[in-house]
């Protein structure tokens, strides 16, 4: 048994201190220790992007990081998108445009889309495709996901 390491991670604004095994993956810390199960484990091989979260503002695959690597960091998960009981415009748009079927990829899609719109508030269709290139969806064929992100971008720009 390896020595546990003390870490501090702020997730969606809440500070957590934990003693963790070095081999604990960041996604396991988020889901199993902090019980934030919105972040999904999909392929577990760094392909599918279902586990995407933002770490210090940058998107990462939380199944391909150790929890100890996030020590001192700020994490944003899908649970952190909602503000004051109101869904984020991206979440509204995914619902409105039916940007999901089974919903498994959705938390990761939302986090990648969130990062994309932060970097580029008015992305072209090609830029949207590139922005979610690390997130696989096996249901929708992506069409409604593109439409949802595009619509959310437009609504966020006009503030409606």
């Amino acid at each position: 048994m390896s020595e546990r390491i003390g870490i501090t991670v702020t997730v969606n604004g809440t500070r957590y201190e934990r003693e963790v095994e070095p081999r604990l993956l960041l996604v396991q810390l988020i889901r199993e220790e902090l019980r934030l199960t919105g972040t999904h484990i999909g392929c577990d091989t760094s392909y599918c992007g279902a586990c995407t979260i933002l770490l210090d503002g940058e998107p990462v695959k939380s199944c391909t990081m150790l929890a100890v690597q996030a020590d001192g960091g700020e994490v944003l998960t899908v649970e952190g998108l909602e503000k004051d009981g109101k869904l984020h415009p991206l979440q509204e748009a995914f619902s409105e445009h039916h940007g999901l079927q089974c919903g498994y990829c959705t938390p990761g899609m939302l986090m990648s889309a969130y990062y994309l719109l932060e970097q580029n508030p008015d992305p072209s269709n090609a830029e949207i495709r590139k922005g979610i290139q690390g997130n696989l969806c096996r249901c929708t064929g992506y069409k409604n996901i593109f439409a949802a992100i595009s619509d959310a971008a437009a609504k966020m720009q006009t503030g409606s």
């Binding site: 992007g49 995407t52 990462v60 391909t64 990062y115 690390g134």
Partner: peptide, 9 residues
């Protein structure tokens, strides 16, 4: 290289 997420790490 890979995708947005992998490129950030």
């Amino acid at each position: 290289i890979a995708d947005v997420q992998v490129r950030s790490r």
